[in-house]
Amino acid sequence: MQGRVQLYQRSHINTDEIIPARYLNVHDKAALARHAMEDIDPGFVDRVQAGDFIVAEEDFGCGSSREHAVWALQGAGVQAVLADSFARIFYRNAINNGFYPIEIAGISTRVGQGDELNIDLAKGRVINMTKDEVYDFPPFTSFIQAVIDAGGLLSYLGKQKSGAGISDGT
């Protein structure tokens, strides 16, 4: 995965900010994408390009359980979010959609707006092409990787035929 950084140097970016509830009367990714980050960053939709990464501080995606937040970012072309930490429902929703929530402590202080990143998920490595730096992160647990590899939770479930249990005890 390669793309540019859209940087937010703040914590607790919540799902109301990612996609305001007034747009939750639809769940089409393209329609939601038109309003992504609208209330905190009205320029985001015009600025974002397919393949970009969002970088933020702590607790990204807190608040409402709306999966629409993941869909709005996916619809806008965002490939992954890199943050110090994620709120738990957003984290689940991301994995369930094959959208990568990558936890790296202090990431928002190490990258700049527009930096070009290359991410190797298998190795757990981010290469900042602009700054010529490398940041490591722990690879996903085998269960989460299996869900992602299956193409999301429902595809995984389809393969497991009503859930044959989880192999990973981490």
Binding site: E67, G152, L154, S162, G163, I166
Partner: peptide
């Protein structure tokens, strides 16, 4: 606990969730 739509779909179908 609160969940998103994909987890909801999985729970509705299987009656289980991780």
């Amino acid at each position: 606990t609160g969940i998103g739509s994909t987890d909801l779909a999985a729970a509705l179908y299987s009656g289980e969730l991780w």
